[in-house]
Design a protein around this nucleic acid. Structure first.
Length: 794
DNA sequence: GAAGTGATGTTTTTT
DNA sequence: ACATCACTTC
């Protein structure tokens, strides 16, 4: 392909007719319907470059994407055409761009500018706490269900107030036997606000409210963003479109808005995305001379693949008419692997990968295995590891979701915003400092009572003497961390917080295999913060670039928006809250990619494997009951096969383990939707394959230790710790607990001989701190005397 | 307070 | 199958 570096003058020459039109129609509303591989990103980037060439200031252009990756790629490609001033274009995800605006305008809506961003975990935890506090039944009030209901409310512009006013909702809830959902929603919203926190949906919803209620603010941004572009428009939800409209719909607006999308690739309706937006867009801007362009030539895939894709998608009724074609030649027919079991599927796919690498000289990074659910990755991992083929799994647990990483981040978050209750709950007794659930409940109740945060009442709530001391210590420690966060750069601050919170010490004490892994992860986090501080490349253009560029109104104003030069802890946290693993791919490494079909959207590979093509799985049993659900599954399949450039292999298994039990499914109906003319006739089921179904581990158990790229620790757990008898049960005679005093030597059935270092608490709440010589790692134990069986031996 | 046990739900996709 | 969570036991 000839994309890379185009001389500035003739970048238009490299485009086909439809693409050129889409690039040069800069004024007024434009809808670009772009099939897979049709050069959509190219059109978007050239369009922006073209605007800049025509004299539009980069900071007057806002380009909204769905993923950070897409935004980065766009920015990089604009830079190739127009140079470093590309950095001043407001290109980013909906969430990140809106967060940036909200930081500046926070005071208008009663938020601090360093507000915390709650991830899904935090959200669920808050909702869980509220359900607890309201004494509601956990089965009826399922946290996940409530969370998604609240989320979809926000996506549809329904505030808590509106929710409780509308009979349709209250009635529906009453029928579902959960009449308090509205109240939970209201409390949740209030609590987030009190904590100075926004969840993902709030980044959109709060911005909408801001633009709605503050004419002077909305005007400022309407004037600022004179050119608006939206990528993957089919995946926007109602709320996102409402915000976009706010920016461009006002009296005298030139309505320079360009949306690019493909209704056939809409795969996010489960989180509120709706193709209705495309239809509405045509309607909403009809009066303003909307221009529509269709990009129908596919430059990615060979003909068999494109034809198969067209056949599949033609089974969907409602769609924008278009004809995708390719002139890249017939290419290879599509192969189908029929396996007996999921394990055999894994083996056959790995075999085929090996064969393709040899026969067609493919690199690992030319190959991807796509599946419907992340849980399917395991069998492929097993066999790829067995064959020593490097691979990487995307999705599943992200780095930032790991417990030890979240633990440290909780402290960092507290340092920046001590009102962040989720961080407080996480950090307050880990490492242990004697602030148990009882104390926590008291604080929580007092905070709710006074309508303030837990931080506000931390040291004013009456508790036991011990807890009270611990709370004072904790509060002053966090306050001290807060000073560091304010004065030091992110790395210095994080480093000393990691040390002084004693989190690092705690991790170092754990010498098990996982323990070392945990410490590695935390070190990795700290390294990440370090490179955040040191990295001035990422957005450096803001400071130094384009000195020859004339100063315009707006340029000075631009400095109002926090950017790369902000190396504070607050800036770092803002950054990572909206980042996923996918965004930090090191493209120099050569590995096979394993990911869900959703995650693969927007990517392309020479060779694609789509696995698990079975009824109930793909299409998913969750979606296949309704026509709309099935259509979306089909679009998902369409996305999957159109990722392939030259080789496409589909696979399925007759039986597969789900929930620990073998299930039998028939081949996916989607397979029947591809004409036999595009399928490889010979699809041999080798007898020999059946004979070697056994797991690789069984054949050569030693092999596991050498796996080069083992990302997920398949290590054995070390079993119950120290479950060895250290004292002879026959001669063991425990003393009554009242007799135990500080300084005594005692014998414990399992822990052996120990010395009582201290005792705290009174009567039946006495807790002894005992030093056990014979224990390996954690020699000091705190033992509740009421239950402990200890024999005094001196 | 800590550790071990049994019950339960989870698995569709993600900013 | 696996992880999380309420519950029991020391």
């Amino acid at each position: 392909m000839s994309i890379s570096i185009q001389p500035v003058e003739n970048y238009l020459d490299s485009l086909n007719h439809a693409q050129q039109q889409a690039v040069t129609a800069t004024e007024g509303p434009v809808l670009v319907v772009a099939g897979p591989g049709s050069g959509k990103t190219r059109v978007l980037t050239y369009r922006i470059a073209h605007l800049i060439e025509k004299g539009v200031a980069p900071w007057n252009i806002m380009a909204l994407t769905f993923t950070n990756k897409a935004a980065k790629e766009m920015q990089a490609r604009i830079e190739k055409v127009v140079g470093p001033r590309a950095n001043r274009v407001w290109a980013g995800t909906f969430h990140s761009i809106f967060a940036r605006i909200l930081r500046v305008e926070a005071q208008h809506i009663g938020y601090p500018s360093n507000f915390t961003i709650y991830d899904t975990e935090d959200t669920k935890s808050v909702i869980g706490t509220i359900i607890n506090e309201m004494n509601l039944n956990k089965e009826q009030y399922n946290v996940n269900a409530i969370r998604s209901r609240i989320s979809s409310c926000k996506s549809n512009l329904i505030s808590p107030k509106l929710y409780q006013e509308r009979a349709e909702f209250t009635q529906e809830d009453r029928q579902a036997k959960r009449p308090f959902v509205g109240q939970i929603y209201e409390k949740y919203t209030a609590r987030c606000k009190r904590s100075g926190a926004m969840d993902f949906d709030d980044l959109l919803f709060r911005l909408y409210e801001l633009l709605q209620n503050h004419p002077e603010v909305v005007e400022k941004y309407q004037q600022r963003f004179t050119y608006l572009l939206v990528d993957e428009f089919q995946d926007t939800n109602h709320l996102q479109y409402a915000i976009v409209r706010k920016f461009v719909s006002y009296d005298g607006s030139p309505r320079n808005i360009c949306v690019v999308g493909d209704d056939a690739q809409s795969i996010y309706s489960f989180r509120g995305a709706t193709i209705q937006n495309i239809l509405d867009f045509e309607k909403d801007f009809k009066a303003h001379g909307i221009q529509t362009f269709k990009l129908e030539q596919n430059y990615r895939s060979t003909e068999h693949i494109v034809q198969a894709a067209n056949q599949v998608i033609s089974h969907n009724k409602r769609q924008i008419q278009k004809t995708i074609f390719s002139d890249k030649g017939e290419g290879q027919k599509i192969k189908v692997i029929k396996a007996m079991t999921d394990s055999e599927e894994g083996k056959r796919v790995a075999d085929m990968i090996l064969e393709q690498k040899n026969r067609h000289h493919l690199a690992n990074k030319d190959i991807a295995v796509l599946y419907r659910t992340n849980a399917q990755s395991r069998v492929f991992e097993e066999y790829l590891r067995h064959y020593n083929i490097p691979y990487r799994v995307f999705g599943g647990m992200s780095f930032y979701q790991r417990k030890e990483v979240k633990d440290l981040i909780a402290y960092l978050r507290l340092a920046v915003n001590p009102h962040d209750e989720e961080a407080l709950r996480r950090a307050i007794n880990y490492p242990r400092r004697g602030i148990g659930n009882t104390t926590l409940d008291k604080i929580s109740a007092a905070a709710a009572q006074a309508d303030v945060t837990m931080w506000d009442v931390l040291t004013t709530v009456p508790t036991g003497a011990r807890a009270s001391g611990a709370l004072h210590d904790f509060k002053s420690m966090i306050a001290q961390f807060g000073e560091k966060a304010k004065n030091d750069d992110a790395y210095e601050a994080a480093m000393s917080i990691a040390r002084q919170s004693t989190l690092i010490d705690l991790l170092k004490q754990d010498t098990t295999v996982e323990g070392i892994q945990h410490l590695d992860n935390v070190t990795g986090l700290l390294d990440g913060i370090k490179s955040f501080v040191e990295d001035d490349v990422l957005d450096g253009g803001r400071e130094t670039a384009d000195s020859g560029w004339p100063t315009r109104p707006g340029e000075v104003e631009d400095r109002e928006y926090p950017a790369s030069h902000d190396k504070s802890l607050a800036a770092y946290l803002q950054n990572i809250a909206l980042v996923t693993d996918l965004d930090q791919t090191d493209t120099t490494d050569d590995f096979v990619t394993l990911m869900s079909v959703h995650a693969a959207k927007g990517l392309e590979f020479k060779s694609i494997f789509v696995a698990g093509l079975e009824e109930q799985l793909f299409p998913s049993f969750m979606a296949m009951d309704t026509p709309e659900g099935l259509d979306e599954e089909r679009r998902l399949f369409y996305v999957a096969i159109t990722r392939a450039e030259q080789f496409l292999t589909l696979s399925y298994a007759n039986s597969r383990y789900r929930y620990g039990q073998a299930r039998f499914n028939s081949p996916s109906r989607f397979l029947d939707e591809i004409s036999a003319a595009n399928l490889d006739a010979e699809t041999p089921i080798r007898n020999q394959a059946v004979a070697t179904i056994g797991r690789p581990g069984r054949e050569s158990p030693q092999n596991e230790t050498r796996c080069s790229s083992g990302v997920r620790g398949n290590f054995k757990r070390p079993g119950p710790l120290q479950n060895v008898m250290r004292a002879d049960p026959k001669t063991f005679k425990p003393n009554p607990s009242e007799q135990i005093q500080t300084g005594m030597k005692v014998l414990h059935l399992r822990f052996g001989e120990g010395k009582v270092l201290a005792i705290d608490g009174a009567r039946d709440k006495r807790v002894a701190t005992i030093f056990f010589q014979e224990l390996e790692d954690e020699k000091q134990k705190r033992i509740m005397l009421k239950f402990a069986k200890l024999q005094i031996i001196g």
